[in-house]
Lab assay of single mutants.
Amino acid sequence: NSLAEAKVLANRELDKYGVSDYYKNLINNAKTVEGVKALIDEILA
């Protein structure tokens, strides 16, 4: 998966839960796919 794909999928996942734009910005600023995954795990914990 590319970083861009990971960000799109992460933001879709956040949308399902009604997560605020603050967290979407964190996702969009992530530098690695692993970073995106770690943020998602933390946000949805």
Rank of each mutant, 00 (worst) to 15 (best):
N1M: 13
N1L: 14
N1A: 14
N1D: 13
S2G: 12
L3A: 01
L3P: 01
A4C: 08
A4S: 11
E5H: 11
E5L: 12
E5F: 06
E5N: 10
A6N: 04
A6M: 11
A6R: 03
K7E: 02
K7V: 03
K7C: 04
K7F: 01
K7S: 01
K7W: 01
A10I: 03
A10D: 02
A10Y: 03
A10H: 01
A10C: 04
N11V: 14
N11D: 07
N11E: 13
R12F: 13
E13T: 12
E13Q: 10
E13H: 08
E13S: 05
D15E: 13
D15G: 06
D15Q: 09
D15W: 03
D15P: 02
D15M: 08
K16G: 07
K16N: 08
Y17V: 09
Y17Q: 06
Y17D: 02
Y17I: 11
G18I: 08
G18K: 08
V19T: 08
V19Y: 15
V19F: 15
S20W: 06
S20I: 08
S20G: 13
D21H: 05
D21I: 04
Y22G: 05
Y22T: 05
Y22F: 11
Y22S: 05
Y22N: 05
K24Q: 06
K24W: 05
L26D: 03
L26S: 03
L26P: 01
I27R: 00
I27D: 00
I27K: 00
I27G: 00
I27H: 00
N28I: 08
N28G: 04
N28P: 01
N29R: 09
N29S: 12
A30D: 01
A30L: 05
A30W: 00
K31D: 12
K31C: 06
K31Q: 15
K31R: 11
K31I: 11
K31A: 12
T32S: 11
T32D: 06
V33C: 03
V33D: 02
V33E: 04
E34N: 06
E34Y: 04
G35W: 07
G35Q: 15
G35A: 15
G35H: 14
V36W: 00
V36M: 03
V36Y: 01
V36D: 00
V36A: 01
K37W: 15
A38C: 11
A38L: 11
A38V: 09
A38I: 11
A38R: 12
L39T: 03
L39N: 01
I40S: 03
D41A: 12
D41I: 14
I43Y: 10
I43Q: 01
I43H: 02
L44T: 05
L44I: 11
L44D: 02
L44Q: 05
A45S: 12
A45W: 10
